[in-house]
Write a protein that binds this DNA or RNA. Structure first.
Lengths: 344, 344
DNA sequence: TATCAGCGCTAATACGCATTAGCAGCGAGG
DNA sequence: CCTCGCTGCTAATGCGTATTAGCGCTGATA
């Protein structure tokens, strides 16, 4: 049996006793052409539309021209992870909210059956008027192609140039990181350590730059440019170097090191301060509240959506926006004690 | 900057010195029609395609095929709540997974700007090929209209008839509830109590029916057909009635009553057993693990998506599917003690 | 030699919509 | 009486593709 037939303008036209063209005019005629259709006729058409719930086929509409009031959302990883921390949820919430405000629906590109690629067999993306791109890790080739092309898009999260400026809304990690360094310094810390990658994604780089630029030559007593190392080993290195305040890019590392420290009888922040660069999802678990800064995910997503709408509707120029990250007090940063100045 | 004109099959045809139809046949002819194009010609066409990097316009492609490969997702509440428990996430995950499998994208209906209604000013629903409907609470008028219409849809969660059978995938709460009652009975409980609504949503009714049908006349010693009542009051009533095992539909009620019980020196499940009818999101918090049953949300969503695809593609008949809910052992159901048989 | 069956390809059409040109009717102005 | 312009609509077209019907040709068969 054939799939259910879609309702078309022809059907509406028949119901209202007019031509297909008239239906189209009623739906989206310019003020001048619309004026030429008397209220009586218009109402007949509108009634037929209301009765049937007809909506113009986005595909046909897109073909002939113009906008669908649909924003594409492309995620490099599945948008709704089953396990634990859901990275995308706050972003999606912000996007949904802004899209609803602006009167757009969202098209979630699923990566249909295969690996997630924007440009695949099917540039299905193009059904939407424009597209938001999310993901921990972007494919730079694709990004360059997007930049080169003329399809409106906005990245959530700062992205480096890819053959041209990338429109984005990101978090301003560098100053937020610097502010935390300053705060540690003002509490009396002068022996700092950094644990995290110093290369890779832009968000990672920003943290490292923000840190390294605000830290004095002799303040940085140890760096571990790696993540996921055994906590004991990490702690050995850092305490041997006499660090009094540890900066982590990864919450997981911080959690483990904090635990290891306690097991060795070191109190946090009494004997050792710990700072995490950026709040991570589900950091709001019972127990420790790490000193950190807030990543305004929802606000980023809203701003990105609004930026995209500007680009779609008014062909606005490329914008790049970094939103400030407020410091999170937490309870893992305090004044240094003399006890940790030397390895026990 | 003038948008680069999109490359079309006509361009390729010109380059290869053939007709547009030939290009299309080379790209996606059936084995029989393809055979009729000699290798020499095919290669000329393919070379032109390689040289130019031509890709068929997905929009035109979908247009002629009549299928958009888009599934609508309508939620009666915002899909991504910022606060606390996110009801929809597991559903959305299942939907995304199944849609990706089947090669569909998802259109999140935001209810563009206004109150969420399927049939509103803007019945954008029909943008998609079919639609999944989620929500704690449905609008029955709208449901009836959907049933009467010919737009393919599937509800996630059982829904009663609305002028006709509603296609759905739900959780089979009644037997799961009955199984928990049976389990309590086999542990020796003979004085049971029920706390929750006995009217309203189908999911609520199912629990009550499953409970009331499997409970003997004299086993049910107390019922509170309400939710959100003060815990102390609830506990007073139930213990006065001599109940040894309490069944809750709402996790929140159970949590508060359990706490109240402990404050009165009653141990759970030592002195009082508590059962929650259905696992709720974030029930996996530290502390108590209530005895309950698992609602297979992801599986429900996957099944619903697949059902919808069947309806969209093959005009399959209405199906109604209930998925089993596995019991969750938990630690709040144990053998009754004599201590609770009378109010202290 | 007339016929006919492939072969290799193309013209034509449909998909659903937006848009433009323009038709029929009518009252007003000349 | 003949335009002219306005009103209220419709026919026709094009978007880029998939698909079908069918054309002209060649070589084999009757």
């Amino acid at each position: 049996m054939a799939p259910t037939k879609r309702l078309t303008q022809k059907d509406i036209a028949q119901l209202a006793g007019v031509s297909q063209a008239t239906v189209s005019l009623v739906l989206n005629g310019t003020p001048d052409s619309r004026n030429r259709i008397p209220a009586e006729t218009r109402e007949r058409v509108e009634k037929a539309i209301r009765d049937t719930g007809y909506v113009a086929d986005p595909v046909a509409r897109r073909m002939v021209k113009g906008l669908n009031r649909i924003l594409g959302v492309f995620t490099y990883e599945p948008a709704f992870p089953s396990g634990q921390a859901d990275f995308f949820t706050p972003f999606l919430f912000g996007i949904e909210e802004a899209a609803q405000d602006k009167g757009y629906d969202l098209l979630l590109l699923t990566g249909a059956g295969k690996e997630r690629k924007i440009f695949g067999e099917n540039a299905r993306l193009r059904l939407a008027d424009g597209c938001l791109i999310l993901g921990r890790k972007f494919d730079n080739t694709e990004l360059a192609r997007l930049v080169a092309g003329d399809f409106p898009f906005v990245a959530v999260g700062r992205r480096d140039d890819a053959g041209g400026p990338v429109p984005y809304v990101g978090g301003d990690y560098a100053p937020a990181t610097a502010a935390l360094v300053e705060r540690a310094r003002s509490l009396g810390h002068s022996r700092l350590a950094y644990v995290g990658l110093n290369e890779g994604a832009e968000s990672t780089l920003d943290r490292w730059y923000g840190f390294s630029r605000s830290v004095g030559e002799d303040e940085l007593v140890a760096s571990i440019f790696d993540v996921g190392r055994p906590a004991g080993e990490t702690l050995d290195i850092l305490t041997a170097a006499g660090a009094t305040c540890l900066f982590f890019t990864e919450l997981a590392d911080a959690v483990r090191v904090e635990q290891a420290a306690r097991e060795r009888g070191l109190s946090v922040p009494g004997d050792l301060s710990i700072v995490v660069l950026g709040n991570h999802i589900r950091a709001d678990e019972p127990g420790r509240r790490f000193t950190s800064f807030a990543i305004p995910r929802e606000a980023m997503a809203r701003a990105a959506t609004e930026m995209l709408v500007r680009r779609v509707e008014h062909d606005a120029p490329v914008e790049q926006l970094l939103l400030p990250c407020e410091p999170l007090e937490g309870d893992t940063l305090g004044a240094p004690s003399s006890k940790t100045k030397k390895t026990p």
